[in-house]
Structures are given as structure tokens and as C-alpha cells.
Design a binder for these strands. Structure first.
Length: 322
DNA sequence: TCCCAGGGGCCAA
DNA sequence: TTGGCCCATGGG
């Protein structure tokens, strides 16, 4: 068992950086929060298990402080791979200053929405597959339930390691979910989504798809088509996956985001999807996915500042973990 | 009990 | 192409 600490500097141009936001919002399994650190287990291609604990230090400047525990010593290449993955997941190179200091300041709604999570960077999943499963699980349920579903999936189909007396899980691989009986997946309380989860996994395995390659493409229309060809993936799942996993400038329309846009920008009037898309793309361009993050995070809370009632309850805040 | 939820597949017009 | 229904599960 080896342990080392890696410091990842957050470039000045990427500030402000709100780490507290990451500790308290959208913390889905296999991520867990321990002692103000985001903790999770990975299995590398070389089959080595690695536990990372990502924390934050402000002095002498804003850094991610990552503690890496591995059963077998990592090679230089593996360490580099891990650092790049963490930078990607924690969006340390995303230059959000213009968004928070300019875009949000000149818009009353975004100003209210951004106050409590000012400087938030959008955390990305390590793989596109994980994002797809995460979004499928979010279809047609109160968002609060996806915390439980992802936890059950990881505990049932992920691999585990016990480190310092605690047990940690990896996110399930496509292989593992592809070979699982539907009834086993169903035990994770995912309901009718069992066949979507297995279906996506099966297609990836059978057709030897490499969804990570999509990160290199800028043809979002093509990417969208590719994703929608997967079972259980429609426009919502594809768009949200592209936004959170591929970091392309798109946004997702769902019951929640439609209602948010119509409430705050169209005086509660119902508006066609086509028009909503045009409106968002034109108004916010490359920042549209950050705008959607603001509009859909803790909406019912900040709406009060605008003397507006918002019907739906946002479940962006994860339940407090010990 | 019924209704609804941060959709997608399917099938009839 | 569009509109309705169904699909599990859990909370109000």
C-alpha cells in the first residue's frame, strides 16, 4: 500500500473556484464525501486499484490537494493519467471568470441564481458511459432518487476494496452490466430503466464502441445522433451527457429546465422547444451549459429572492454525509 | 387511492 | 411527423 500527495494548481485564469459547491452538490456514488474531501475508487487499465481523496487548499494559492492511495505503486504514466483525469473531472482549466463576473452580473435571474454557488465549476464524470447511466437513471423520477439508484448500482456491480477499514466501490463497467441478468439490475430499484442500462452496456461491448472518442469531436449533431442510437437515450439524455461529460456548448431540455426558462424568461408562458433552443443558444452561446446549471440548481431557493414561486424542488444538494 | 416525477419506445393515425 | 399510452418506483 503506497500513499502520496499530489498538488494540482488551479490556474489564475480559472478562478474563482468554489470547492465547497463540489462537496455539497450532485455528489453521486461512487463519490463520497469524507472530511471535506471528495473520495472515490478507480481501477486502472493495469488492474491496479487507486483511491483518490480530492481536497482543497487556499494557501499559498488555490490548489487541489489530492491524496492517492494505491495497493501497488503507480508508474509515472499512470500518475500522469490520473492527474489529467482529475483536472478534467474538476474542471480546473475552465475559465469561468467571464461567466460569473460579467454574464451573471448583468442578468437579474442569473445573479440571484449564482450568489450561493458563486464560482462553481461543473464537475465531469470520468467516462461518458458513467454519464449516460447517470442520466438514464434520472429520467422521469424526482432527482433525489438518483442518489440511491447510483449507490445501489455501484454496490451491486462495481468492484470494491477495503482501505483503512472502509469499503469503497468503483463505478460498474459496461462488461459487468452487459452480462448481468435484468432481474439483478432491477434489484437496484431502477424500475423499467433496467433494460436501458443493460442495453447501453451490451451495445458498447458487442460493437466495441469507444465513447471516449466523442470527446475529440466538435460535431455535436453527429455526437447527438451517436448517443441517441443507444437504447434508452433520447434528446434529454444525449444533450445532458454532451454538456456534462463532453463539455460541449449545449443544454438539455427537460421538465425542470423548460419550466425554469419559461418561468424566469417568458413570464410563465409555455413556449415551444424550438423557440426555447433558439433563445438559449442566441442569448448565452458558449455559456449555455453553465446557465442551465444555474437555472436548475437550488431553483426553488433562489426564486424567493426574485419574489417568484417555483413549483419544482431542486435536488441538486446532496444529502449531508457524516 | 391517486397523481406525478429533471423521458423514451412504440404504435396508430 | 405527431400524440397518446405504457413503462417501475417512491413520495406527497
Amino acid at each position: 500500500m503506497t500513499e502520496e500527495t499530489i498538488i494540482i494548481e488551479i490556474p489564475k485564469k480559472s478562478l474563482p473556484y468554489n470547492f465547497d459547491y463540489l462537496l455539497t452538490h450532485y455528489v453521486f456514488y461512487p463519490w463520497v464525501v469524507e472530511n471535506k474531501q471528495l473520495v472515490r475508487l478507480f481501477k486502472l487499465d493495469s488492474d491496479k486499484f487507486v483511491l483518490i481523496r480530492v481536497g482543497f487548499t487556499e494557501k499559498p494559492k488555490d490548489n487541489l490537494r489530492v491524496s492517492v492511495i494505491s495497493v501497488l505503486r503507480l508508474t509515472q504514466g499512470e500518475r500522469l493519467w490520473l492527474v489529467n483525469l482529475i483536472k478534467w473531472m474538476f474542471a480546473t482549466d475552465e475559465e469561468v471568470e467571464e461567466f460569473y463576473e460579467v454574464i451573471c452580473q448583468k442578468d437579474l435571474v442569473l445573479k440571484a441564481a449564482s450568489e450561493d454557488i458563486y464560482g462553481a465549476h461543473m464537475r465531469a464524470d470520468p467516462t461518458v458511459f458513467e454519464s449516460i447511466i447517470g442520466v438514464i437513471v434520472a429520467q422521469n423520477v424526482f432527482f433525489q432518487r438518483i442518489y440511491e439508484m447510483t449507490e445501489l448500482l455501484c454496490k451491486r456491480f462495481g468492484e470494491s476494496q477495503t482501505i483503512k477499514g472502509r469499503i469503497y466501490y468503483t463505478f460498474p463497467t459496461p462488461q459487468r452490466l452487459a452480462e448481468a441478468p435484468l432481474s439483478d439490475i432491477r434489484t437496484c430499484k431502477v424500475g423499467y430503466r433496467d433494460k436501458y442500462i443493460k442495453g447501453v452496456a451490451e451495445k458498447i461491448v458487442k460493437e466495441d464502441l469507444d465513447l471516449e472518442k466523442l470527446k475529440d469531436s466538435d460535431d455535436t449533431e453527429k455526437i447527438r445522433e451517436t448517443l441517441i442510437s443507444l437504447p434508452g437515450v433520447g434528446p434529454y439524455t444525449a444533450d445532458l451527457t454532451i454538456a456534462i461529460s463532453l463539455k460541449k456548448p449545449v443544454f438539455h431540455l427537460d421538465l425542470f429546465s423548460r419550466e425554469a426558462i419559461c418561468t424566469f424568461y417568458f413570464k410563465n408562458k409555455k413556449v415551444e422547444d424550438k423557440e426555447l433552443r433558439k433563445f438559449v443558444e442566441r442569448k448565452w452561446g458558449k455559456w449555455q451549459r453553465y446557465v442551465m446549471l444555474m437555472l436548475t440548481t437550488n431553483t426553488d431557493t433562489w426564486a424567493k429572492k426574485l419574489n417568484t414561486k417555483f413549483r419544482l424542488k431542486s435536488a441538486a444538494k446532496s444529502l449531508p454525509v457524516q
